[in-house]
């Protein structure tokens, strides 16, 4: 697949259709690909990688790049990334006519930290061949079943369908009937005290690095509320429980109805806090209260928090509904 993609992209470079491409650059290992801008076909041929570790969602980087005056930028988007792209488009953060999208097919991505946890930290290289992941370590070759090391967010994949592209590699995928709200339901069925202690345990690990906010394709404000010195909520590192709670409630609230559930927040969290559960809770509530809505599905439908219905449910429903303890 990688070589086909490279071949096609080189063609686009040569025909001057595009002036740069944003993709995944080879790192020191198979798994530490960094999102990067390729300015020439030579660079791309040499350093572009598309493999099971090309997890980074590249759509947000387009904001900065599509503001450049010159030429078209090519971007590689996996199916879930296309939803983020549409969202950005809908909010006028990027200009469509300056971007060329190659949709790349996506099997589940792998999680290097799961592989390391299972096989040790002395990993030299990892590669996946269908169902088995083969890992070269200082200790020799080891194998592990792919199903054990799939990235968490891919375990609950919502869609294999590319909702926007100029060119697609592979077959058109389908929207999946995912079980992504299962974990949210488990929490909903807990007692409030249990939920509170669950979230305290999780959020107390937060180091306040803002990675979840900065990687999020829906967090695109020029000036974030948490960067406003006069807001009274601005903080570099949370000083106590309250600030940890507040940051995460507000972060999730600010993307409620706009979050496409791409899962980048949880993927990049250095402390593995399941932040996507907060976002999914909002998505689940929105579906329940205001009808099914998938952000990024199209660019016409208004986001749920920017519209209303005269007969919407009252906030007191939170107390009275039966399916949530």
């Amino acid at each position: 697949m990688q070589s086909e993609i490279i071949k096609r992209t080189v063609e686009l470079f040569n025909s001057e259709e595009i002036v740069r491409a944003i993709g995944w650059r080879k790192g020191d290992f198979d798994y530490d690909l960094n999102p990067s801008i390729f300015k020439s076909s030579e660079d791309l041929e040499k350093n572009f990688v598309y493999n099971d570790f090309s997890s980074a969602n590249l759509s947000k980087f387009l904001i900065k790049i599509s503001q450049k005056e010159d030429g078209k930028t090519l971007v590689f988007l996996k199916s879930c990334d296309t939803y983020s792209f549409n969202s950005l488009l809908q909010e006028h953060r990027i200009s469509r006519d300056k971007i060329y999208i190659i949709g790349v097919p996506c099997e589940e991505n792998l999680d290097p930290s799961k592989i390391k946890a299972a096989l040790g930290e002395d990993v030299l290289s990892m590669s996946c061949d269908g169902e088995t992941v083969t890992v070269e370590t200082l200790d020799g070759t080891k194998t592990i079943s792919k199903s054990e090391v799939i990235l968490d967010r891919c375990l609950a994949c919502k869609s294999r369908k590319h909702v926007v592209y100029d060119e697609l590699f592979g077959e058109e995928g389908e929207v999946l009937d995912s079980k992504r709200f299962d974990q949210v339901e488990i929490l909903e069925n807990m007692k409030p005290e249990e939920r509170y202690s669950f979230w305290r345990t999780e959020l107390s690990r937060c180091i306040g690095c803002n990675a979840c906010r900065d990687i999020c394709p829906a967090c695109t404000c020029e000036k974030c509320v948490f960067d406003n010195r006069d807001s009274g909520v601005e903080n570099k590192v949370a000083t106590n429980d309250f600030e940890e709670n507040m940051f995460h409630i507000i972060r999730a609230f600010h993307v409620a109805g706009r979050c496409t559930d791409c899962g980048e927040c949880s993927r990049v969290c250095p402390e593995d806090i399941p932040l996507h559960l907060l976002n999914r809770k909002f998505i689940k509530d929105i579906n329940e209260f205001y009808g099914n809505y998938q952000a990024g599905d199209d660019i016409e439908t208004l986001a749920p928090l920017t519209r209303f219905d005269a007969v919407d449910v009252e906030p007191s429903i939170v107390k009275t509904r039966e399916n949530v303890k």
Binding site: E193, K281, L305
Partner: peptide, 17 residues
């Protein structure tokens, strides 16, 4: 109404009374 419904639901989700 929409905002507060969602916010209160989230507070509940975090285990707040």
């Amino acid at each position: 109404r929409r905002r507060m419904t969602l916010l209160f639901s989230m507070l509940d989700f975090l285990g707040i009374e």
